[in-house]
Simulated assay, not measured.
Amino acid sequence: MTTPFEPPAPPVRPAPARPGRKLGPIAEELSSAHRAWLGPMRDSYLQSGLTLSELSARVRLAKSKISELLRGIGLYPRWEIICSLSRELKMPYWPLYQLWRQAAFEAHKSREWVERCSEKTALTTSHAAPPLDHRAFRELVESYYGLYAQVFLDDEPRDTAVSDTFDILWLRWNDALASPDTRRFAWNVLRTTVMAKTPHVDGRPAFGWAAFDTVVLQSLTAEADRVDQMAESLELFKAMSRLPDHQLDVTVLRRLCGFAPEDVSDLLGVPLATVRSDERHAVHFLESVICPPETEGNTA
């Protein structure tokens, strides 16, 4: 795989200074699905140069309510409100609606409530095409993103994580293009999205059942051999979960997905030397914590 996708980065413009009180942080207890659309909306607001007072006058919503909405405080907002804000902030409707809808279900809103909220804006939520370069990038990497996500997630959450990744990228595509490397920006979005949906044990990600579907397991026919390999894999996955993020990603892509170092470099948007260095450090760590079977029980 080659991903020579590095469009010219436009100059990054600092967000204009605005009068008034600074917008507070996002509520810590907010779900990952809610954050998925709220983060880009906050960024769009902060980069717009508008004040809360100006935005309030345009959408006819109290300034305090907009402030609460942009912090994720209070009741889950109706789509009509989000739609009005997105229009003023020049955000694409379709990916925002998709992410808002998913977060609504996770907030235990009924399907009837979701449909009722969006019935007046049906035309604005009709499926629209993303930018051409976004579509090209998605076609290039989507299958690889799916293989990575499946190491941690079952089929449905895997598909949702990958779909959410490209919706978030659509909302933040200008930021992605303005970043030092679009591939690295996109990978960070994917990783954040996948890890938000991945069960964690003691703060470290747990591997999904798909992680066991490796070449070595498939090649074993004897049940006893498969059981032994399963036990060894459990030990390996537990050790792998302790790796630093970059080393974990390289190890997953190299050892579980079977990608060549050059492909991993392209996918992550990092130099090949960095991939090789991360892999060496990861192997050294794993060898130090996993005792090879032939040395167990040996005494000097």
Rank of each mutant, 00 (worst) to 15 (best):
L85N: 07
T125C: 08
S179M: 05
L123C: 04
T2M: 07
D155F: 03
V151E: 13
A33H: 02
R158W: 02
A196C: 01
M240P: 01
D278M: 10
R204Y: 07
R111F: 01
S179L: 07
R21Q: 03
E28I: 03
R204Q: 12
P8A: 11
Q229D: 06
L69N: 07
V141P: 07
L217T: 09
L236S: 08
K90D: 11
A282L: 05
F185A: 07
M230C: 08
S56Q: 11
S288W: 06
P25F: 04
K65N: 13
R254H: 15
I73K: 14
T2K: 09
Q102F: 00
E28C: 03
P11A: 12
I81W: 08
R60M: 09
L89K: 06
H281W: 08
D154F: 03
S84W: 08
A36M: 05
E142D: 12
G208R: 04
L217K: 09
F212H: 05
T251M: 13
I73L: 11
E296D: 07
A33I: 00
P7F: 05
K238I: 00
S67I: 03
D43G: 02
S56A: 14
R242K: 06
G39S: 05
D159A: 10
H34T: 07
I81C: 06
T221V: 07
E68R: 15
I73C: 04
P7S: 01
L70T: 06
A273I: 11
M1I: 06
D245K: 11
L140D: 05
T299E: 15
A129P: 01
A222G: 09
T121H: 14
L220G: 01
P95C: 11
R13I: 15
D245I: 03
H246L: 11
T3S: 10
A27F: 03
G146C: 11
S67P: 02
Y144P: 00
A36S: 15
A206L: 13
L75H: 05
S44R: 15
T125L: 14
D266I: 02
F259P: 00
D181R: 14
